[in-house]
Design a protein around this nucleic acid. Structure first.
Lengths: 132, 132
DNA sequence: CTGCATCCAACACGATACTG
DNA sequence: CAGTATCGTGTTGGATGCAG
């Protein structure tokens, strides 16, 4: 909080960014940075989903990773888990209010990603060409 | 684009999120998710910085990781690298226009993080309490 | 169907030593 | 000062088998 506080007052191009070090940014990074959370949240944004359903909707995710991802989301209060005592068992997952607020964040991510994808791809090709 | 395309029309709470799988989102995630990129970009958002200067501004980063982080940013066209043929050598790094646009994304990240930090922390404590 | 435990490979990162 | 090269380590995640 005291050390390393950074304040960038938006001049010509940049916005105001403050205290990016240990103000919980790492927490969000851990979540958005992992391999599956974003995809799972996107699918849950559409509504209530069952476990198997999510596994179908998110291609390539393993059972193990879906479980781990959902558990972490549940632990952070971003997802609710409802178990029905049926045979076979049925479990439903749903975004909480906080979880839904994260979809705005993800939308920003997706938008920026789509917008700059071609430019970045080209920059990458140019760079790799110069460095054999 | 065809397979796994997801469209969420914002209903009561969620925004519109589309195609979160392989539209280059993973690329951005890799960057936002790694340990140092966000911090380096935040420091560069304030203006031109030298290598050593960045290493001072980003506490804990090793020479190796600073180099790797800057190289990747340069490769993606988010940072320019300018070498001056002085003795001792001097290298300056600066955000490109695309790089600056990413600071907006980071700001969204930081804002959400700060806003929901207490709620998430509490949810985490509650969860851990129920699961010994 | 849902979920946990285990083993294993890949990779990111840190520490250190060396170079122009 | 600004790197590169190398090694060791912890973590992430995939595959598989077992259980309620």
């Amino acid at each position: 909080m005291s050390v390393g506080h950074t304040e960038v007052t938006g001049g010509t191009t940049g916005p105001v960014v403050s205290c990016a070090e240990e103000c919980g940014v790492r927490d969000v990074q851990d979540r958005l940075g992992d391999k599956w959370t974003v995809h799972v949240v996107v699918e849950l944004a559409a509504g209530v989903r069952r476990f198997k359903e999510l596994q179908r909707l998110v291609p390539g995710i393993s059972q193990r990773m879906l479980t781990l991802t959902l558990r972490r989301l549940e632990r952070d209060g971003l997802v609710t888990r409802t178990v029905y005592a049926t045979v076979p068992p049925q479990v439903e997952y749903e975004l909480t209010e906080t979880g839904h607020s994260m979809t705005h964040l993800i939308k920003a991510l997706v938008d920026w990603s789509l917008e700059h994808r071609p430019v970045i791809a080209q920059a990458r090709r140019d760079f790799d060409e110069r460095q054999p």
